[in-house]
Design a protein around this nucleic acid. Structure first.
Lengths: 335, 335
DNA sequence: TTGTACGCGTTATCAG
DNA sequence: CTGATAACGCGTACAA
């Protein structure tokens, strides 16, 4: 028993295939109720499903989006995926999720794969910025796309971003207000613009109060726990600072671990502020003060933006605002 | 400038479309080197990409798999996704990832969506077991599928599973060997078979040493941190047990939090053993002893199994072995 | 060794 | 208000 086609439906209903196609696509202006219902009934009965290949062949649309994220193992991204997926599904799109594992060549392979799969659009969270060669590929393939999280500086393309500078500023201000003066910062890779944005906002907050961030107190990480763990060792052993701002929660976790190993108590000896507010940090003891972003909603917004693009509506980037969530890991310094 | 077709390639290369199609599909037995190379060169030059819709229409294959997972926010599943994705891509399949959010109706909707998208196969991690109505839908749609993680008891269908009973046993044995006699267990939902498997293995280990698990010491959770956190309160306050086995790491995190709030020290006052060994638990202090499963590899194996099915090779389920990873959260009880 | 011609299941155009 | 029919781009049986 093979799949039924609109031809079969047409026969069963005693109408032409055109008519069936019409009700399928709700192009029913001025169609008799009776015909319509007859067709609908038959379709219902046999649980008819149109062939997407044939459809795509004609319409050139796959009803599928692609999503490329840099690292699915960072809990930030599953949240983002959920947002994108939910919004896409609600608009009747499927989603192909690709994890580039922070590797540029994988990113390129996936771009290619999505092109081959003829997705209708791509939501792209690049490794760091939108690579010119990627940009060229996307435009050559004429695939509409929106950026998300990474690539804000790309003024030519719209996307959904966080005001990272503001996030950094909030973190800095908070620590300053608590009275900290000797502070360090563990940033993401220098090559990633949002790392620098967070750092700059952070430094601005310190400068406003006449506090300087020593170069030796700026540590470059890779947004992952492991490296932050190792790289924070020196810093913590020297005991020069009373507070650390980790530019994402995963790295804050690494600092927690190292602090614990060195017998440094949080927040008594050391205050820590993270960034992202990923769900899992509720497991940290003490609870982590962090800069929150509404990742799920950003995912949804990206899809809305993409759909606008498909409809040829002029789009502009959306900037989300981070907020400070004060918990237990930040207190005034111990004098 | 529209997309090029094999017809265009054929013209440029001065051959027929059949010839182009042949080199595209590597059906080149007995084709002259020269023709072949000529075609290949043209395809290279224009960066030709065949139209998947037209292909699918003829071959009835989409080169796409679907993956349904119950909860992408549990870090166990991103690992699984990575495995599935990598293996699928290596075999030139794309992957549509669907997150059912532990909701049966979403599960059904996704099954339907994947059917509509005409995926070539589905890797299905059901909410708890393979629902008869899902089973019927899958078989009616004739979509090959393999189960993963959940649904082992389904003898009719093959899949990739963990020996959960053994995992539970390892946890129990470990605690017994450390000298614990008053032990509690936080299990997953009763409706999920693997919850019971883990519990049974665990109980078997205790029984072998004449230790009984009191009904009041069996607490039903939902595999999530939050509920384990709340539900462990009573248990911890009564101070009846010296050790807890949490049936997944997320729930272990919840216990950590509650223990901390109540001033119960781990492992001095309380030993804890988790399950899964998800990456993020390296952030826990002290480090969590847990039952490890090779989630990534399980994902890969599931795809291999699925591809075998597509090739009409007889398949049997694959059972993975969990291992005990002793870290810092389990020590002999304090007497 | 290569080419011709048909069919896959839809949508869109035009005619009735 | 409804129906023929020509695309869409590819794979393949059959022909040369």
């Amino acid at each position: 028993m093979k799949r039924l086609t609109i031809k079969d439906i047409a026969e069963k209903a005693g109408v032409s295939i055109t008519t069936v196609s019409r009700v399928l696509n709700q192009k029913e202006e001025g169609m008799s109720q009776k015909t319509r219902e007859k067709v609908l009934k038959v379709m219902e009965e046999v649980d008819f499903q149109p062939n997407q290949f044939a459809r795509g062949l004609v319409t050139k649309r796959s009803k599928t989006f692609g999503l490329i994220v840099p690292n699915i193992s960072n809990p930030y991204f599953p949240e983002l995926c959920r947002g994108v997926e939910d919004e896409a599904n609600e608009s009747e799109y499927s989603l192909i999720i690709c994890n580039s594992d922070d590797q540029t060549d994988k990113e390129k392979r996936y771009l290619r794969l999505l092109e081959e799969q003829q997705v209708d659009g791509i939501i792209f969270s690049a490794k760091d910025y939108l690579d010119p060669s990627d940009e060229e590929q996307l435009s050559r393939a004429k695939i509409p796309f929106v950026l998300i999280d990474r690539g804000k500086e790309e003024k030519k393309h719209s996307g959904v971003f966080l005001d990272n500078d503001k996030g950094g500023y909030l973190a800095g201000k908070h620590l300053i207000e608590l009275g900290h003066r000797n502070i360090a910062c563990i940033i993401g890779p220098r090559s990633i613009a949002l790392s620098n944005d967070r750092l700059e906002g952070f430094q601005r907050a310190l400068r406003e109060s006449g506090v300087e961030l020593l170069p030796s107190h700026i540590i470059e990480g890779n947004f992952q726990m492991e490296m932050a763990y190792h790289k924070s060792k020196d810093l913590l052993m020297k005991k020069e600072v009373t507070a650390i701002f980790a530019c994402n929660d995963m790295m804050a976790c690494g600092v927690y671990r190292m602090a614990h190993e060195l017998g440094i108590r949080i927040p008594t000896d050391l205050s820590i502020v993270g960034f992202d507010d990923i769900p899992l940090i509720s497991a940290l003891i003490p609870k982590l003060t962090t800069i929150r972003q509404d990742t799920y909603q950003m995912g949804r917004e990206a899809v809305k933006l993409l759909i606008q693009k498909l409809d040829n509506i002029e789009t502009t980037s959306v900037l989300f605002n981070p907020t400070l969530v004060v918990r237990e890991s930040s207190t005034p310094p111990n004098v």
